[in-house]
């Protein structure tokens, strides 16, 4: 049993500022979803609604088909792990972990095993931990919550690269052992891209895109090969990113290649790969002059749920 997520016409205002505007979104249960967006786009606000940290100004937030606000059966199975975690800083690490036992599903043994593996000292106070270790502690508590909906909001901040890698692997292992719904909010897009099954891009308080990863990857291509050949194939296409090493060039283009173009590229010795999620994200969320507006989201979303609405 994992939890689906549904927001219907949700708006959340901070004073006069709309952090989320008329958002409608459905996330399928039992998948790992990526939540991407620029700073201040509304990612954290969206997650805080799903965890009942906040109540929307208008609209409805449903988790597992049920209103989440003050719903003990739901919130006890929902975990939102914020950067640095929510701890009493004067508590010891061990005591902070044990607090998780308020959840009937919390796995203390697993949490302590992870603490040992990630070398988080149990006897230290939380305020004595480095930023990285504190992030690890938060991640451990999130994993050990064994919730049906687990959300990690920039929880990797402060972790070094090996620790992040180990965390992602542990997250995936836990997910494989016990399928549940996971939402990862992050700026390190390429690091998590391989783990994601669905991607939601939030921009300026609205859902800009919601697609399966494959759909995103089909929105563009990476061309790699001899520089001249790559330039020839990419001519006339919108280039998102390019790299050059000696005579070899790699170009990311924001267009799906047709059969003829693929054939021509192959004949010229150009390899075609999927577009990088990060390049695509930058392309989609970077404001451009009016002659080249953002792609019309509704038209470019064949796999998008009927319930999802874009407001970009």
């Amino acid at each position: 049993m994992s939890f689906s997520v549904s927001l219907r016409d949700v708006t959340l205002k901070y004073g006069d500022t709309e952090a989320l505007s008329d958002v409608t979104l459905t996330l399928e249960a039992g998948k790992i979803h990526g939540l991407l967006g620029r700073n201040g786009a509304g990612k954290t606000t969206l997650l805080s609604l799903l965890a009942a940290f906040r109540r929307p100004t208008s609209g409805e937030v449903l988790v597992d088909g049920r209103p989440v606000w003050e719903n003990v059966d739901v919130v006890s199975q929902v975990a939102l792990v914020r950067e640095g975690g929510d701890f009493d800083d004067t508590d010891t690490v061990k005591s902070s972990i044990e607090t998780g036992e308020l959840r009937p599903s919390f796995d203390l043994e697993y949490a302590l095993k992870l603490a040992e593996r990630f070398e988080v000292p149990l006897d230290k106070k939380v305020n004595q931990l480095s930023r990285g270790k504190r992030s690890v502690l938060a991640a451990i508590c999130g994993l050990a919550a064994r919730a049906q909906l687990t959300m990690f909001d920039e929880v990797h901040l402060g972790m070094d690269a090996p620790t992040r890698d180990a965390f992602y692997k542990e997250l995936l292992d836990e997910y494989m052992d016990r399928p549940h719904t996971v939402i990862l909010s992050t700026h390190l897009i390429d690091e998590v891209a391989n783990y994601l099954e669905g991607v939601v891009i939030v921009d300026k308080g609205r859902i800009m895109r919601h697609e399966d990863v494959e759909a995103f990857q089909g929105m563009g291509a990476t061309l790699t090969g001899p520089a001249d050949a790559v330039d020839a194939v990419a001519a006339g296409l919108e280039v998102l990113a390019e790299q050059r090493l000696g005579g070899t060039k790699s170009v990311t283009v924001a267009a799906a290649l047709g059969a003829a173009e693929r054939e021509r590229a192959s004949a010229a010795g150009v390899e075609i790969g999927p577009v990088g999620l990060q390049d695509l994200f930058i392309h989609l969320t970077t404001p451009r002059p009016s002659p080249h507006p953002h792609p019309e989201p509704e038209k470019a979303k064949p796999s998008q749920s009927k319930d999802d609405r874009t407001g970009a």
Binding site: V78, R82, L102
Partner: peptide, 16 residues
């Protein structure tokens, strides 16, 4: 003041 956010993050409702 201190425990409210911590306990809500632990999956307690505010009523609890």
């Amino acid at each position: 003041h201190t425990l409210l956010p911590i306990m809500v993050a632990q999956g307690l409702t505010r009523r609890e």
